[in-house]
Design a protein around this nucleic acid. Structure first.
Lengths: 252, 252
DNA sequence: ATGGTCGTTGCAGAGAATGCAACGATGACG
DNA sequence: CGTCATCGTTGCATTCTCTGCAACGACCAT
């Protein structure tokens, strides 16, 4: 909509691939050097790009600050966190919380065995959207055409022999998940790791987030992990109720 | 430099404080609603803002992707990481790596006792720049006028009774650190936690990063922690050499 | 039913961004 | 040591884009 802003923002993913100098930016943007310079300067003033000693530009620190604050302000995360911790204390396994946004599935919280850690390590990386239990839960709630559109657009990497192989199988899996109200990932991402997850719903019944418990085979078998399902679902439902209760438009 | 881009980017920190609707954005930006709308649309197309169901805008997922890729591309981090892990295995304590950028000190890697965790949890939060060992190391390398300018601009929160209280004390501390080539934080941030750190230098001798080892009082006393200093310095020097050796302008 | 709020769109004017060309700094090479 | 090439930077005139306005439509509450 705004050409200038559009160009400026296009610089960011470009620099995400690695540092670049003015000429490279101008070329890849298809504009004159002086134009690129002014755009970069503006980005620089806002801290989104940084100029290293060799005069090349790279992404700046403010991006971290923004990403950090962004995740802090997610209502679901705030409400869910204490419940995730409690669940972790009961079962001892890793607990994940994820949301869906614009064709991406995003981990927004994680509780590790020993102490809580906000886990951003996977954020931005290609999430195993075709196999992760939370991804299935989030996608299963979309409308049928949406699901189909996404399923066809995805790649289906065979992380293991049990990974979901193609769009057909994925849609079938989503239908199952949608029906039963919970999901698993039995060695589909990493051979020895199983997950079981449940959806968190808003007041209107739509899935706003998904949570899962993960554990390696060596600790508990897949069957044993499945015995946790009632607990996981109960936790998810508790969070759902609490989330639905609060007026979403509370903050100023 | 570019008014349009400037306005658009000003929206991001604004949304970082929490979701806002079109009217609020327009008002706080001092522009007409239609203008704000177009800016938001452009940001939206690039995934930097997300529109939630109640039509309010908040920061988008792409920010995470960018922040993630940004940190992945830091040469120092890549080179240092394996050394940090090795150090961690030797001493068992938490190891941090940080850089300085535009008046901010930024953790870019962390190795926890049991397994490596990229630690973004502190990123974006007000880093304890006045007390952290790594912060002292990074700031100590700046020129005298720079140091003074920053020292005066900072706040000096008294996290504990041993926190650096004011600009004068801070500058004095920086001088010491600059002289001796290493730094400590003895309970200055959290009463029971001590740190000892050393600088990582580039080929020109300038400090490009800083690393530290942290441990709680209950595990080792401050004195015991200080016995690790030679090891920490040796590790930092090793990283420095390796970093200096590689041609910084290697990547395309 | 009605008034109010909020998001959205088309349009004409105005202002900002663009590309050009020239300058200066830096470094490579003969 | 001098020359040439490369890259970042700046001032300026032109042009195109962005802006603000006003009107419309959707939605909600009263």
């Amino acid at each position: 909509m705004s050409q200038t802003v559009d160009r400026a923002l296009s610089i960011l993913p470009l620099l995400a691939q690695g540092p670049a100098d003015l000429g490279q930016v101008a070329e890849r943007l298809g504009v004159h050097k002086s134009t690129a310079l002014r755009l970069l300067r503006t980005l620089h003033e806002h801290g989104l790009v940084y100029r290293q000693e060799d005069q090349r530009y790279r992404l700046g620190a403010r991006l971290f600050a923004l990403a950090q604050e962004a995740v802090e302000n997610l209502d679901v995360r705030e409400i869910a966190h204490s419940h995730l911790v409690a669940l972790n204390e009961q079962c001892g396994h890793t607990v994940h919380l994820a949301v869906y946004e614009e064709n991406e599935v995003l981990y927004i919280d994680k509780v590790e065995s020993r102490y809580p850690v906000r886990m951003y390590s996977r954020i931005g990386k290609p999430v195993a959207i075709t196999v992760a239990a939370v991804a299935k839960l989030l996608l299963a709630d979309l409308t049928e055409p949406e699901r189909r559109a996404i399923a066809e657009r995805l790649d289906y990497p065979m992380y293991t022999s049990r990974s979901v192989p193609n769009a057909g199988a994925f849609l079938k899996e989503l239908a199952v998940v949608r029906e039963q109200g919970w999901a698993t990932d039995l060695g589909g991402h990493e051979e020895s790791i199983n997950c079981v997850g449940a959806p968190i719903r808003g007041a209107d019944g739509r899935v706003v987030a998904a949570m899962s418990v993960s554990a390696p085979n060596v600790v508990v078998t897949a069957e044993e992990l499945l015995t946790l399902l009632p607990l996981v679902r109960r936790t998810a439902d508790t969070i759902s109720r609490e989330y639905s209760g609060t007026t979403p438009t509370k903050k100023a």
